[in-house]
């Protein structure tokens, strides 16, 4: 990819201008995300760089939007809801998804293609359509749960969103776990069984440690899907299940306040952490299976 010594002037010009173009596209990808970080420390309530900020005057910066976020009841309730819904939905998605992925990776599965298509469908169907379908069905289901089991409306509201989010997260678990299982050596489980381990022991002692990276990254995908999801929550949730993205959505639509930028910055930090974890896991798993030298 480096420029050969005999390159003509035209080639040189093109080589460098191509790099500049790529640099600009990378800037387009990354700058919008980075720009909100300094803006979230803005001392005023504006969404732009004030002269004080450009002069790097400490007066121009403050933590007041973060303070807002951590003291405001609405935002705190939203944060709590997000951290109730996303982990439970993730656990459901990971448990069901991993089992099914192991089933799917067996050598003789009837209707494998059709089953795969069904299990992946929540990822393919546009969210607005899933949300519309769920809106009709889940309200009926909610009424049924409330009437037959006498559950409180709040509790049923959480159940509805958790089930919906688990369904949306499952395709990611299926995809990542089946990908890890591609290189899985089935003679290992046979060997374990041969030496007297029962299927459960075999699963937890032999298979699980090997596919764990795939399970964890699938879980992280499922987590971020739920944590970031807003369309379905708006359709089937009620005010008491307001999540962080929902609160941001209303904030952006109605009374745009700079607190949103503080929240956004916190979320960017979270996604950097998640991304790093997934990348490390992916590399580790590839190394373990000898698929890449690095």
């Amino acid at each position: 990819m480096s420029l050969p010594a005999y390159a003509s002037t035209g080639q040189r010009v093109w080589y460098y201008s191509f790099r500049v173009i790529c640099g600009l596209i990378f800037a387009f990808l990354i700058i919008p995300i980075l720009v909100i970080i300094p803006l979230s420390f803005n001392a005023t309530d504006f969404f732009t760089f004030t002269p004080e900020m450009l002069r790097l005057d400490p007066e121009g910066y403050s933590l007041k939007h973060y303070e807002d976020f951590f003291t405001d009841d609405g935002w705190q309730a939203a944060l709590r809801n997000s951290f109730i819904i996303a982990p439970i939905a993730t656990i459901l998605a990971v448990v069901f998804g991993t089992l099914a992925a192991i089933g799917l990776s067996q050598s003789h599965v009837p209707f494998r293609r059709a089953i795969m298509a069904i299990l992946i469908s929540p990822m393919i169907v546009p969210l607005i359509i899933s949300a519309t379908g769920m809106f009709f069905f889940y309200s009926a289901m909610g009424n049924f749960l409330e009437d037959t089991f006498g559950l409180s409306q709040d509790f049923v509201g959480y159940i509805k969103i958790i089930l919906a989010h688990a369904a949306l997260g499952i395709p990611f678990v299926i995809i990542t776990v089946t990908a890890t299982l591609v290189g899985f050596d089935h003679s290992l489980t046979r060997a374990a069984a041969n030496m007297g381990a029962n299927p459960v022991t075999t699963f937890f002692k032999v298979q699980m440690p090997l596919i764990l990276p795939g399970v964890i990254s699938g879980g992280l995908f499922a987590f971020i899907t739920s944590f970031d999801e807003v369309v379905v929550v708006i359709f089937i949730g009620s005010a008491s299940q307001q999540t962080l993205p929902w609160q941001m959505f209303t904030g952006l639509r109605e009374q745009i306040s700079p607190t949103i930028l503080a929240v956004a910055t916190i979320l960017v930090v979270i996604s950097i952490l998640l991304l790093t974890t997934v990348e490390l896991l992916r590399r580790r798993s590839e190394r373990l299976r000898g698929m890449s030298p690095g």
């Binding site: 919008p32 995300i33 720009v35 971020i224 993205p245 941001m248 956004a264 979320l267 960017v268």
Partner: peptide, 11 residues
Amino acid sequence: WTSLLVRTSAW
């Protein structure tokens, strides 16, 4: 990996 709403608010 960044939240959709973060990117939309950035824009």
